[in-house]
Amino acid sequence: MPDMTTAIETKNLTKDYKDVRAVDSLNLTIYQGELFSLLGVNGAGKTTTIKMLSCVSSPTCGDAFVNGMSVKSRPTDVKKIIAVSPQQSAIARNLSVKENLKLMCGVHGFDKEKTARKVRGSLGSFGLSQVAARKAAKLSGGWQRRLSLAMALISEPKILFLDEPTLGLDVIARSELWDTIRELKSRMTIVLTTHYMEEAEALSDRIGIMKEGRLVFCGTAVEMKAKSGKDSIESAFIEIVKNASKGTSKEAKA
């Protein structure tokens, strides 16, 4: 359960791309230990929000604070406590599973001993030992995604961003990844973007819905259904998105 200490806070976070406003004055608070899902149709601003929170993209205006550190003024410090598992399986395809994990230890500046310990730990906890020597390119989509997640977690981040982690996976692979994410929940704050409503419902403490760069809903899955008067999470999502008009951004503090 989240401990109500703020992990992420955005203040009028805005991103413009030429003449398009991808994220519009986003005000959002995410608590430590929480799994927060960001939902929205394509182009709603979910990935752009994650990019700004992970210091890959600079906000046009406004700011975001990760564990109290501004993404604008202290990006290097923010990067030390976060990890991102991007939309696609972001792996070095010609490297083995073990080498991919070692690479991540290297880019985080771990020494030899820590690298050996972390690689051993990741191979074990993600069940990757059996494919440790296999080239990443030769793995199935599910295994690649699992490796991608293990690579993100090897630095023991305080905050983990998962950008559509189960996109394109079959039912079994998705279910296995859900189990892994559930195991991580108590250990870190997780921000997840997804198009799968049942995924958001099954995993999240709270859900935020974005439309045209704005936050149009923030609350639990139960609150989402109650607000929309629908029984299923998918119907609730459709109802909220259809009814949301521009300018309805709401302060998302719980």
């Binding site: 990019k51 210091c55 991102v84 690579m151």
Partner: peptide, 8 residues
Amino acid sequence: QRLYTTPM
């Protein structure tokens, strides 16, 4: 994109 979020 993954590596951009590391301290590199």
